[in-house]
Structures are given as C-alpha cells and as structure tokens.
Design a protein around this nucleic acid. Structure first.
Length: 310
RNA sequence: GGAAGGGUAGCGAAGAGGCUAAACGCGACGGACUGUAACUCCGUUCCUUUGGGUUCGGCGGUUCGAAUCCGCCCCCUUCCA
C-alpha cells in the first residue's frame, strides 16, 4: 500500500541490449525513456556512447540525451535532481517513466534518494589539496572524519579529496552527511537487469567496437578534438580518450581499438559488480543469438508490476 | 657447418648458490564506490583437503642446499659460412 510512484528501470552491462528492451517496453506501456547514462547526456558523443539514433526512437520521448555541450560538465547531483523532476512530469502526463542506463551511481542516487552534502566542487580547494602527498591527505581526513578515512583507501586520492573538501567547507563530516538515506527506496521501482554469458558479452563488445569504427567513430572523436574538447570531462569516456593519442601520433589506430575493447570489457564487469551487489535487480539472461527472445516474459512481469498499482 | 646470445608462472621480464613459489609490468578474475563514476581505487592470480605438493626447456651431475655452478641433448634469435 505504498504511495510511492512506480517506475521501470533497465540496467545491465554495456552492449547487452538495454536500448532495444527500453523501446519495446515504452511502446507497450506508454513509456517515456530517461537516459541513465553519464555519457549520453553530451551532444556530439553519439557513436561512441551507443546513443539511440533519432530515427530509432520511434516517436518515444527520450529525456536527458543530448542536453549538454561536450565542454560542459555533469554530475550525479544534477542527474538525480533532474530525474526526480522528470518522473513527476511523466507521471503527471499519465505515462510511465523508464530509466535505462549503465551508470550505477547515477541510478542508485535516484532509487535510494541520495542526500548529497551541501558543497559543490570547490576547484580552488581541490587544487590546493591535490598538491599534497596521498598519505598526508589521508591522515588529514582521519583527523576530521575517522569513519570516512576508514572507508576510503589512501591511494584513492580523488575520493579522499572530495571527502576532505566536504569536511573542510561544511565543518561537518562526510560520513555523517551521506548515511541517512542510503537504504530507503524512494520509488516503487521494477529494476530489470539484463545479463549475458560473459564470454558472449565480451565477443559482442569487441564486435560493437568494430562496428563503431565502421560507423565513423574516428571522425566523430576527431571533430570533438579539433573543436578543443580534448580535455573535457565528456572526452574521458571510453571510445574517446583512447583515440586522442592517435591524433597526436602517439599510438596506432589498431592499438587504440584494442584499448577501447579492453576498457569496455572492464567497464562491463564493473557495471555488473555494481548492479549485482548494490541494487535489488530482477535479472533476465539474454541469449545473444536471439536477443528479443525473453522480451515477452519481461513485458509480462512489467504488466504485473504496473497492474498492481492501478 | 662455425660464432654469439637466449629458453623463468597465461604473456612480457627480473633473479646469477640458501633470505625465492620466484621481484616488477601486462593480461585475467574478484571487490569497493554519495557532486568528474564510461571516473577513481583495492585485492587475488602454479596446484592444494592450507598440512603440504609440484616448478624456472629436457636429462644427468656437483653441493648440506640449484632457476642460479658443470656436462650432454632439444628449441629459438642474430652474425659468419
């Protein structure tokens, strides 16, 4: 008897076929799709982020795709805010929000209603901190917030700095500002996870990278590079950062392609780790030889899920 | 046929008598994750019933003790013929 809003979420490693499922479900259940992927928010990063092409969207509303220029930056906080807002709007329209994506933290922040510490990034402070040695930073954190220091490895400088930044600029403890809402679900979410035999998933990833190359990935990245976005946050994405050295004559195209494949495989594993260990997911195994085979089964369970509410 | 160098764990590569089941790198596997997260970071990686068992091209030898020294053999690379 929850008053929580119902949403559908599709997660899974890259290249399992989340997009195809999202379109099928959206068609069937008056869905609107919310992108849950940190890279697809950027304009111009199309091929490498495996974005749905406009002609594939089939008249279904897609949100949070192409909302930023490649030079802008993005973060979980904005994502969570925007998604909460979108869910409200979509429900008001009588449609069903479908979040689909592979960025674990982003989706987690929505599902579990993360409360973020007050501080936005203070780049001056960060810069000052990053001059210090990792152990020194960690010692400092231990003094200000022992719990966080315990949790964050000294070598994980990025996280240590963020924790320090929060302690220093709010006067509070990072660990105390985040624990409150961690396990409380904000929505009544049906979280569908797509999985696939690892070996076959990796084969698919390797193949897809080649397909991206055939579709003109190099030209896409080169254009962004030429436009001066080489150092941008968006260009840190897999498929982009590996190609830049080839423009500077530091790496062969062949090597770059292999790196993209390898980084994508590792990324897929990290995604799996997150979804398996941090979220309550209903898993559906996908047969690569017949990817849509289980869509009916999934659709039925979605029907059941949505039906309960009405 | 002659000369020189070399064969070490999935791969690359150290080690030149005991402190070595063997540094380090890569790969692979597992894990963590609250404002860059497609980021960043950690752990494991010969077998094992965790007692131990088998290793450093092969066989034999020297030695209390060998991946390390000696002999023969096999294979690879480069140079001369």
């Amino acid at each position: 008897v929850s008053m929580k809003e119902k949403i559908i979420v599709i997660v899974g490693p890259t290249a399992v076929g989340k997009t195809a499922l999202s379109l099928a479900l959206a068609k069937k259940y008056k869905g609107e799709i919310i992108n849950g992927d940190a890279v697809q928010v950027f304009r111009g990063l199309d091929i490498g982020s495996a974005k749905v092409a406009p002609e594939e969207q089939a008249g279904i509303s897609h949100h949070l795709i192409d909302v930023l220029n490649p030079g802008e930056s993005y973060n979980v906080y904005s994502f969570k805010q925007e998604v909460d807002h979108l869910i409200k709007e979509i429900r008001a329209r009588g449609n069903c929000p479908i979040i689909v994506g592979g960025t674990g933290l982003y989706i987690q922040s929505v599902l579990y209603d993360y409360a973020f510490p007050e501080t936005t990034g203070d780049s001056a402070l960060r810069e000052k901190l990053s001059e210090q040695a990792p152990e020194q930073l960690h010692r400092q954190l231990a003094l200000l917030d022992a719990v966080s220091a315990e949790k964050i490895h000294p070598n994980n400088v990025k996280r240590v700095i963020r924790a320090l930044e929060i302690c220093l600029s709010t006067g509070g403890k990072f660990s105390e500002q985040t624990s409150a809402t961690e396990h409380i679900a904000k929505y009544d979410a049906k979280v569908i996870g797509l999985s696939m035999n690892r070996e076959q998933l990796y084969e698919r990833i390797n193949l897809r990278v080649h397909q991206m190359m055939a579709q003109g990935l190099v030209a896409e990245v080169y254009q962004l590079y030429q436009a001066g976005y080489g150092q941008a946050q968006s260009m840190q994405a897999i498929g982009y950062k590996e190609l830049i050295p080839t423009f500077e004559g530091e790496c062969s195209l062949e090597t770059a392609v292999e790196r993209i494949q390898q980084h994508t495989r590792r990324f897929a594993k990290r995604q799996l780790t997150w979804f398996q260990n941090k979220m309550a997911v209903d898993w559906y195994d996908i047969d690569p030889a017949n990817p849509t085979l289980r869509f009916d089964v999934i659709a039925d369970s979605v029907q059941l899920f949505l039906g309960k509410a009405q």
